[in-house]
């Protein structure tokens, strides 16, 4: 055992990178769920983003075009879900699962011929002066820009939900769609926009995987990251800041576990791998039992189908 070989500063920095894809996808899903829509298709949207971002980045040599296209492509398939659940009023759980199935299949078809291709590098930006600060410099200011963009997006979502009128409308729609309708808000339109945002964010998360974290395309490469993002939203009790904490915790447990193994610490990997899920259930129990339903922050209309005539 050689714990001294673990450098905590480097460890925290790599936890942040490991958490970025799920953080991006979960931020999108948070908005979607806040509007009262449960989209279980995150995995399908992520992998669509991963492949489309990869194909465009590899084709144009520009990773940023790749990210943009990934967001667009995932947004497009999220709208299939949106139209079926919002306009045609089908069940969200079943449609979301269908979206995952469809996305996994479609991505493999799109990605044919892209195995073994190297994407253009996403440069790590060393911010002058800031990245030279001891400890904090390496942790905060020595990443690729997507890490910072994901942090900014979390802040933006927090501001949006807490301080803007649009955020208020979104929350109202998610809390009680009939009341929101009575107040004159367009429930379906708001939800479609939330779904589209969720799709775009999942696409970015997927592209982060294929362009930065793994840098390559392989079939099924998200390997369940979309489902972890879903769990994360619950873990966070639908609060952006907790989402950030949760993402780093989830990513952190994985990275820490790998580092402990590398240092020769004998840990029961199989049982440790269960721990993020068990912890999430525990957190869920604590937040659900200790306070009233409203404080729980769970959108009241989550997974309920909305029709104006009801």
């Amino acid at each position: 055992m050689d714990l001294s070989s673990i450098n905590p500063i480097v460890l925290i920095a790599s936890m942040m990178a490991a958490a970025t894809p799920i953080l991006l996808a979960a931020t999108g899903e948070l908005i979607c769920e806040k509007s009262g829509v449960l989209n279980l298709g995150v995995e399908g949207m992520m992998i669509t983003g991963a492949v489309c971002g990869f194909v465009v980045a590899a084709g144009t040599g520009n990773p940023w075009l790749g990210f943009a296209f990934a967001a667009l492509a995932a947004l497009a398939i999220s709208l299939i879900f949106g139209i079926i659940t919002q306009v045609l009023m089908a069940n969200q759980v079943a449609t979301g699962l269908g979206l995952t199935l469809f996305g996994l299949g479609l991505s493999a078809l799109i990605g044919q011929g892209y195995q073994g291709v190297r994407p253009p590098r996403v440069p790590r930006i060393e911010i002058p002066y800031l990245s030279d600060i001891p400890v904090l410099g390496r942790i905060l200011f020595s990443h690729d820009p997507m890490v910072h963009i994901s942090l900014l997006l979390v802040v933006a979502v927090w501001v949006f939900l807490k301080f803007t009128r649009a955020g208020l409308i979104l929350r109202a729609v998610g809390e009680n769609h009939h009341a929101a309708h009575a107040l004159g808000y367009r429930v379906v339109r708001v939800r479609l926009m939330a779904i589209a945002f969720g799709g775009a964010m999942a696409g970015l998360g997927g592209a982060y995987l294929s362009l930065v974290r793994v840098p390559q395309w392989t079939e099924g490469m998200t390997a369940g990251a979309g489902w972890i993002a879903l769990a994360l939203v619950v873990f966070a009790a639908w609060r952006p800041w907790r989402l950030l904490l949760g993402a780093y915790l989830f990513g952190g447990i994985v990275v820490l576990q790998l580092n402990l193994q590398a240092a020769g610490v004998r840990i029961p990997v199989e049982y440790l791998a269960m721990s993020p899920y068990l912890i999430t259930i525990l957190v869920l129990v604590i937040i659900s039992s200790s306070r009233g339903r409203n404080a729980l922050n769970a959108p009241g209309s989550l997974n309920r189908t909305y029709h104006a005539s009801q």
């Binding site: 199935l101 996994l104 299949g105 493999a108 078809l109 079939e219």
Partner: peptide, 11 residues
């Protein structure tokens, strides 16, 4: 993968 996408469409 084509079969998977096909099942997704059916759904």
């Amino acid at each position: 993968a084509a079969i998977q996408a096909f099942q997704g469409m059916l759904l």
